[in-house]
Amino acid sequence: MTLAPTRGSKRRAIATPAVARRPLGFFLALPPIILILLFVGFPIVLAFAFSIGLTGGLNHVIASIGLNVHEAENWWGTPAAYIEVLSNSRILRDLSVTVGVTALSTVTVIFLALGIGLFLKLRGGRIARLLSGLAIIPLFIPVVIASWAIVTFYSGDGFVRSVFAQFGVEAPVWAFTMVAVVIGSVWTSLPFAVLMITSGLQAIPNAMIEAARDAGAGFLRIVVSILIPMAFVPILIAVTFTAIGVVGSFTVPYFTGPNAPNMLGVSMSNYFSAFNQPQQSVVMAFIVFVIASGIAAAYVWANFRSAKDQGKV
């Protein structure tokens, strides 16, 4: 790859004129790639073959264990399993719930994280530091505990209902509803988004904001025209990570959500283990992959943009 005349590569070129393209780097970098190819890439290819009814080879075992397996009678496969899953109204309801929860949680998380980040950047002070510290706490707590804590907090005899009951008000029960799933997803996703967005915002020089203020720019103008564009890559990474994390989540909806309809992560696990219908489960996995690939494209693009900006790639 040719070294573009950017800041980073120039510095590197000056520091070590003989930065070589040596095979050593390639071999050092190989082990994690092999691991990923073997246990991510390969299973995905195999599972795709299974989902279209190709049940030979390594898929033979799972096809013989599973119930209700659609087998293809030709070499190019059959869409029968996809047709079955996509015409199952319960799974379709799960799908729409998954998309809805993901969108709502992501918007809420980014909104909160941006609020905290902007508060810290523009106002500063003790309250702002306290808030950003507070938002990191969920990172310290395993997701299983967080989910269980949220269920007990919003349950029929939980804190929220108890407090309202002191004033004789009957508050709604949120545990085991989609509201609790969104609350749980926001709770668990908040730290990463806050870390990403605050560090992105803090990297913007204060002089820039001062200059804009002197030129008469108001709060909104500074945020929209300076801060958000300059922290765009970290914000986009926060968005994609949050959305992908929520769309493939299992623990939060399993603990806090209703039996049905619930998110696809839960139905996937049910179909795989409890119902012993692995093919349908794999089809759902690919539906989730398709949703995520749209989000992932944004992530990869954002990362390469940031890497290019720094002259690293």
Binding site: P32, I33, I36, L37, F39, V40, F42, P43, I44, L46, A47, F50, L58, N59, H60, V61, I62, I65, T240, F241, I244, G245, V247, G248, S249, F250, L264, G265, M268, S269, F272, P278, S281, V282, M284, A285, F286, V288, F289, I291, A292, S293, I295, A296, Y299, V300, N303
Partner: peptide, 23 residues
């Protein structure tokens, strides 16, 4: 490739891995 690992929703990935692990 490393980015892609992060871009797969976890539960979907585990279901495909489990299918292989049976074999």
């Amino acid at each position: 490739g490393l980015f892609a690992l992060n871009a797969f929703p976890k539960m979907g990935l585990y279901v495909t891995i489990a299918s292989l692990f049976y074999a």
